[in-house]
Amino acid sequence: MQGDEDQATADQGAVMESAEDTLRFSGPLGTAEAASLWPRAMEAARRGVRSIDARGVVSLSGTGAVLLAEVARHAGDAPIEPPGEHSAAETLKRMSDALAAAPAPPPPPRVGLVTRTGQLAIGTVKQCQTRVGFLGEVMLGWAGLLARPWRLRISELFRHLDEAGTRGFALCILLGTLIGVILAFQSAIPMRKFGAETFVPQLVGISLVRELGPLIAAIVLAGRTASAYAAELGTMKVNEEIDALSVMGIDPVAWLVLPRILAAGLVMPVLALVMDLTGLVGMGFVMQGLGIPPSMVMNSLQDWVSVGDLWGGLFKALIFGLTIGLIGCRSGLKTGGGPRAVGDAATSAVVGSLVAVVVLDGLFAIIFFRLGW
């Protein structure tokens, strides 16, 4: 220990003196004083202190007592001379006993790169197993429903059809019209350079029917319905209502999941069709403003947009809807405990649905390209 004195004074008057191998504290040692002295006290303790003298402390808070105890611990369990004032000495004793009874947990061991990679791989495999297991439960539920179709809750199915489909028509009409207008204007700008504005209806029509209609409808369904499924089922999970159904011998998958997945799958082609039609209407208004009559627009669409394009887009929408319903229900049933569980489940449902839709859309693009469709 250095022989010279090192003194640090807090704003409220607490004093810390370091002389030889003793660290002395004096004055009031409250929360503000302890915070001001903490860095210097820890540094002095690391340099080497054999004893701590707190006899000059006139008042002591819990934070100040923790400071004295931590300095002693960092100095190798150096002894502490308690304050002369009785209440301060009692505070120090109670805090020291509490810290000794509940010591701080040791720092976690350092994990190497190979170990972290292995843990990540094991966690990914477990997540995949959980998702495949849930998919298997849903498939078994569908098989049981085909054998006993009267188990399907028709009233619940119509409720979800209304919430996921009917109440989403207004949003789809608005988005579809705006998308058609935007695509028409943005396509007309480069086409005008080549005098090819007449090809805008073909471009917009194929883009909407094959790609943008199902994709934007899926985004709407993921934002509205997947989050609603996850929040509703997550609340039931937190309130132990799903466990109560299992205790009563009722399969939660058949009772709660299947109507929601079926409703999402049925409404998605309808929403995609609404997006397609309203987008074409919006594009028609723009073409009318550019001097292209509606009859010419209709003829172009009939020549270039086939029924196969429409069916392909609607089939994609059906798969998107089933996937969104499946992910939303799974996120709700896997909700944990705590106040943030339901919000985390809704967020997981939306993010997972969007990622799954984009991945499926890419797979469909590859398949359609290989099939020449």
Rank of each mutant, 00 (worst) to 15 (best):
A218H: 01
R224E: 10
A217M: 08
A230P: 00
A264P: 00
G234A: 05
Y229D: 03
V220C: 12
V267E: 09
L266D: 05
T278S: 14
T225P: 00
R210K: 13
V247C: 13
V238C: 06
L258I: 14
Y229F: 15
K237N: 13
T225A: 14
P259H: 03
P269Q: 10
A254L: 13
G249F: 01
E240Q: 15
G265W: 03
I261L: 14
A231D: 09
A222P: 03
A254V: 06
G223Y: 04
L277I: 15
V267A: 11
V281Y: 07
R210I: 09
A272G: 13
V238F: 02
T225F: 01
Y229I: 05
L258C: 01
R260H: 10
L245W: 10
R260S: 08
I250P: 05
I242C: 04
A254R: 15
L280C: 12
G279T: 08
E232A: 14
V209F: 10
A217R: 07
A254P: 00
M275F: 11
R210Y: 09
A222Y: 00
M236V: 07
G249Q: 01
I219E: 02
E240N: 12
M248H: 06
A264Y: 00
M236R: 12
L271R: 08
R260E: 10
A217P: 08
L262E: 05
A222W: 00
E211D: 14
A226H: 09
N239G: 12
A222N: 03
G234F: 00
D243R: 11
N239K: 12
I216G: 01
M275C: 12
N239D: 13
L277M: 13
A218Y: 01
T235A: 14
T278G: 04
E232R: 11
M275W: 12
A222Q: 02
V247Q: 13
I216D: 03
P252H: 02
P269F: 13
P259V: 06
V253I: 15
V274Q: 05
G223I: 07
V220N: 10
M236I: 05
L271S: 06
L215W: 01
M248N: 11
A263C: 08
G265E: 07
T278P: 08
I242R: 04
L277S: 10
G213P: 00
R224M: 08
A264E: 00
L280D: 12
S246Y: 01
V209D: 04
M236S: 09
Y229R: 07
L221M: 13
S227P: 14
E211M: 11
L280G: 11
V257Q: 02
I250R: 11
M268V: 07
A254K: 14
A244W: 11
V274P: 11
A222E: 02
V270W: 08
G282T: 04
G234K: 01
G223Q: 06
L215P: 05
V247S: 15
A264R: 00
I242M: 07
L266T: 15
V238W: 01
G223N: 05
P259R: 02
R210F: 06
L266M: 14
E211Q: 12
G249K: 02
G282P: 03
P259Q: 02
T235F: 10
G213M: 12
L215Y: 04
M236K: 08
I219H: 02
I219R: 02
D243S: 12
D251E: 09
L277P: 01
S227L: 07
S227M: 10
A226I: 08
L233D: 00
E232I: 03
L262K: 04
A244T: 14
T225H: 03
E241D: 01
T225V: 09
M275S: 09
A230G: 01
A272W: 03
